[in-house]
Design a protein around this nucleic acid. Structure first.
Lengths: 271, 271
DNA sequence: TCTCTTCATCTAGTATGAGAAATAAAAATG
DNA sequence: CATTTTTATTTCTCATACTAGATGAAGAGA
């Protein structure tokens, strides 16, 4: 047999996942260049065992090494083979079950659920998909979702933003203009701008959804960056969105954001 | 002190939650009147202990009895007070953690996460919100999301549906027309129609999202039903959506679906 | 007095064994 | 052949012991 699932073969991406959980609260989109992804005060130096197991199994499942209908190894067996306790394994299975990936019954064992039951928008599931090697369909699905969600968010933001939202967005765009997307500060400002739009929608479920979607987009574009030397100047698109939101023009904000995403996606090679 | 969280005070709604997990696969939206919500073959007669604990704590959290930043009772203490084992309690906490509701650290205890980290689109979280007594903002958020998602789904469906999709949708509409929304068969046909549209989008993340949204909508309208004796005839709206999808007119399908939802929502008293 | 270090303490995490409950499959019964 | 009973297997639950790491307070040093 082979040795182990070993999630440590992809350290770069693996680390990204951790950034999203357990950071400090981040208030609401200030633009300080706090972008050290590793600046967490004191994460448990080595991940908990049950967490590592869930990670390994999660990748194996979304990566297709287990198919829907397959049954996971029994508790005794897995614990013995992997040298962990049944407790840790069971807790890992509970996590997977909570995300809809598997379903446990006595006597039958725990089976992989049908993909329709998977919680595709869960941040961990998305991260696992990404680590397992995202399929073209997966990426297409997410980018389509982005095209659905972000323009709608801009529309709601245009109708509900207050003065503070406007001023913060303006500040983010200023910084973005000043530093450019080649610098970390510039990219942080870009992220802030989009986060501020989300915040201005006053819709928590929309925020949750968009957070997942933009995470995948960020992971994707992080590697697609710098393919062409100089891509299109992003500022006019952003200014147009900001202008529409500021003036409270919902439909216009939606269309401008749609244009922004279309341009950004084609520049990144997607779409 | 009070006795226990006791999720059994709301039997009707509590049972709804169970229907979504662990049913048979359901292939893809056939119209047979299989709508007995209680027809599951052999669910564990009484729910697992860790599941009940997760349920109780989940409701307590989303219902605001614990605020973000609060810490849950320690393992020893909770186990002693509630008469369960530490194991069961820990597994429940793992579930909540997997859904983003809490975050555990040694010595600090497990704290309630900021709402931004909650997995608002998780079916269980949504169900708990609903059981805890959905706030007006929560319902507004979900209905807004529905208005964003379902028209977009119709648009994609119009571009990607195949002959089988069309024929199934047509059949569903026939049954819906035949039985009407006053009967269980008619409502099942209605659900099938919407599910078939989702299926035709060929986008799994969209399907996952819409599944959550429509679940909440269904729970809501289940109680708002029959307020007015005879509401508007739903068939013309449905026929219009179907027609646009059949002809492959994406933008038209989007607009017709938007109209359908608007009408249904106003009839149900929402919006 | 202040700062840094050390250390006791508290809590979640891991491990193990033993048994209960559920259920799929086999066997017995009509 | 249908139905019921038994059997075997697997998850589920509990109890207990121990580990590890974060926290805060006591103590040492400036």
């Amino acid at each position: 047999m082979h040795r182990q699932f070993s999630s440590y073969q992809m350290p770069e991406i693996g680390r990204i996942r951790l950034d999203d959980r357990g950071g400090r609260a981040d208030e609401s989109g200030m633009t300080q260049a706090d972008d050290h992804p590793l600046s967490r005060p004191s994460s448990p130096a080595q991940r908990a065992v049950h967490d590592r197991i869930a990670h390994d199994l999660g990748i194996a499942i979304v990566g297709g090494r287990y198919q829907p209908g397959d049954i996971l190894p029994g508790e005794e067996r897995y614990a013995a083979e992997q040298g962990v306790s049944r407790t840790a394994y069971r807790e890992a299975v509970r996590v997977l079950s909570a995300k809809g990936l598997v379903y446990s019954r006595t006597k039958s064992g725990t089976r992989i659920n049908d993909r329709l039951r998977w919680n595709m928008l869960d941040l961990d599931v998305l991260a696992w998909m990404f680590e397992a090697g995202p399929t073209a369909e997966f990426l297409r699905d997410i980018f389509e979702l982005r095209i659905v969600v972000e323009p709608a968010a801009a529309q709601f933001a245009a109708l509900r933003r207050d003065g503070q939202d406007i001023s913060r967005m303006g500040h983010a765009l200023e910084e973005m203009r000043r530093f450019g997307l080649q610098t970390a500060e510039g990219r942080a400002a870009d992220q802030s701008f989009h986060r501020l739009i989300l915040h201005a929608t006053r819709n928590e479920s929309l925020i949750t959804l968009a957070t997942s979607v933009t995470a995948v987009v960020a992971w994707t574009t992080r590697f697609a960056r710098d393919e062409r030397k100089e891509s299109r100047d992003p500022m006019p698109d952003h200014d147009a969105v900001f202008d529409a939101i500021m003036r409270g023009e919902g439909e216009e904000a939606r269309l401008k954001m749609l244009a922004l995403i279309r341009n950004a996606s084609t520049d990144a090679g997607m779409l």
